[in-house]
Amino acid sequence: MQNARPVARWLAFLAGCAFFWSLMFVICPAINRTFPDMQRIARVVDENNLRTGMFFYTDVEVTGAAAMHTSSTVRFMPHGAGRPGG
């Protein structure tokens, strides 16, 4: 491609941009419409304001609440009256 004419190179670049655009506005929305589970995930992602590609726990807000909840459960585990076997 580096040896191609400038016009060809710019056309290839624009074709790449068009592919990105179609990914966002044509291909992925079409997949969403085809598979109901994708629509459900889309709703969950929107409701929880998630970014599903974020890779580390500190990038995802909900992990703070999750860690607080699970560690509190382990730390202050209910053991009061009426506990089965208690």
Partner: peptide, 22 residues
């Protein structure tokens, strides 16, 4: 990815989300 784990967990329930994210 942690974000995808959170989304998949939230898809099931809040408890599943908490366990998955932790």
């Amino acid at each position: 990815a942690t974000g995808a784990v959170a989304a998949a967990g939230a898809f099931l329930s809040e408890k599943a989300l908490y366990v998955a994210a932790t």
